[in-house]
Design a protein around this nucleic acid. Structure first.
Lengths: 300, 300
DNA sequence: TGGTAGGATAATATATTACTTATCATACAA
DNA sequence: TTGTATGATAAGTAATATATTATCCTACCA
């Protein structure tokens, strides 16, 4: 025989009222039901919890001690229930988002907007490159990730939500800056600045090149979009970058797009999570927010 | 549907091992039994507690929170059980003893001896007169009381354990100090110093007098045995007192016993508690100790 | 590309719970 | 002394809890 929560609940009521009948009323039970619950609890702990002296009921020392524990346990259950209810709502809890570094250029904006709508949600943003993001996805760290091409090895649910055009960019004074409809081949003797291996942009670029049977004469590898943009600006070479990362530089005239045939490389951004993942309502809501935002963008 | 302790226990095991099968082994159950318990808990809180990503299992945020509560609740139950076990032993807990002031002359000795045998027991001794002791008995304050004649109005279990002879005492230079087999009548014109109403000694004396159809010429009422003894010593009058209270004074020759017919008034000390009272093992043990001590005294 | 390990699900048996109503016992008060 | 309030106890019952075995599903690994 063992203790049940019901027993504690009934006991607690009796201990409070010091009356079986009152407790029965409070719990909407008959008095014998209450007597039995208390009796069973007494049996399972092996000590009387109450003593009846004349008409009055008193808690024994054991009853006194048990009451304390019963109250604490009850309180924990109540708090747990409340916390669970909060988790069910969209307006609470934690939301952990992993993004590929390129996404960062607009992820911050997305998160800010979402955070404004759901101020109580604690948001964590983790920015890394594609490869380490995939590792984190593997160990179930982020609730959701924003990335380019979803992996096909791993089992993920991915939904695309926005265009991610990749551009071939150069310094404004590049010799081909003004040319139209360049063949990729005409860039054969240029130096290409490329992202580190494991980067999604790098992968996309490599596929683009191999599609056109193209192999640049020389490449320089650099880690991070910012570093590469600076290198391009000072004339180190060309690069393939996501339009989102160079938006500012293009409009400021510090970089130019080369009008190469096959560009912009049309790709999409994806919001993804491992299949089997149980999205919290908050995560679900953020996912929807991202999808809606994507639709709004392409419509406007 | 509602949460059960079993559910929390099984959940806790799964949350610890992050494996249903391991948990099943630990709990000596089959794996489906574990799945069901967790599922039921999930249903009753309305949130998934685990998520399965590929082959691995992870706690959801809800699972993380619930685990904390489950552990705390489990801990409380464990502590409660341990405390109950301690209460079952004789060597722990509190023991509240109420004694009538006259008893105090040997109660201290009894308690000291008992305390030496059970050093962890927390003893509380409350010394008052008979009347207020009865009140305390009524409100169930002391575990046990030591007193003279048990009340017949109140429903108590009383067991006598020791002689309580009442003596008629006087100052050593009293005119009848040396007389033998005095008739009570011969003390008719003496002054009697009597205890306050509500005192057991007072009641016993009054009964003694009425049994012999005796009415002293004058009485002086005083509160407390000590005060009365001093009054007798200085020759204020005579008194009826329990032999236990005047032991020291008699042997020191500061008081003498008058050899009156009908004295010593034979009475007994009682250890008592309200019937219906659930004596703790400690209280039960003290009661037995008192009874044994009484037997030892009368035998020796 | 099977094989395997781990989990979900279904069907089912059994034990226990959580109640009920009816009745009895008793302390106290009128 | 009787009536009333309170609890204990007994018997019966419907619900449920807890487990089982059997089977299926699937991710992963060799």
């Amino acid at each position: 025989m063992h203790i049940t929560i019901r027993q504690l609940q009934v006991f607690e009521s009796v201990a409070r009222h010091l009356s079986y009948t009152r407790a029965a009323e409070e719990l909407h039970l008959t008095q014998p039901a209450v007597s039995m619950q208390v009796k069973q609890l007494e049996e399972s702990i092996g000590l009387p919890l109450f003593e009846q002296i004349g008409k009055k009921i008193y808690r024994t020392e054991a009853g006194e001690i048990m009451l304390g524990h019963a109250l604490t346990i009850h309180e924990h259950l109540t708090i747990a229930k409340r916390e669970m209810d909060e988790l069910k709502g969209v307006d609470s809890g934690r939301l952990s988002i992993g993004v590929v570094s390129t996404v960062n250029y607009f992820a911050a904006r997305l998160l800010a907007a979402f955070s404004r709508q759901h101020p109580k949600v604690e948001i964590r943003l983790d920015v890394t490159n594609r490869e380490s993001l995939l590792q984190k996805l593997e160990i179930n760290e982020p609730d959701l990730v924003l990335m380019g091409q979803p992996p096909n090895g791993l089992d993920v649910d991915a939904a695309d939500f926005m265009d991610n055009p990749l551009l071939l960019v150069a310094a404004p004074d590049h010799r081909l800056a003004k040319s139209k409809r360049l063949a990729l081949e005409s860039l054969a003797d240029e130096t290409f600045v490329v992202r580190e291996p494991g980067s999604g942009t790098r992968l996309a670029m490599e596929r683009f090149f191999s599609d056109y049977d193209f192999k640049p004469q020389s490449t320089v590898e650099m880690t991070g979009n910012e570093v590469i943009k600076q290198a391009i600006e000072v004339g180190l070479g060309l690069s393939v970058l996501s339009a989102h990362t160079v938006e500012l530089e293009l409009s400021a005239g510090r970089l130019v797009r080369l009008d190469v045939v096959g560009t912009p490389i049309i790709r999409r951004w994806y919001v993804a999570h491992r299949s089997g993942k149980r999205l919290t309502p908050t995560a679900q809501s953020f996912k929807q927010f991202v999808l809606d935002e994507g639709k709004r963008q392409s419509a406007g």
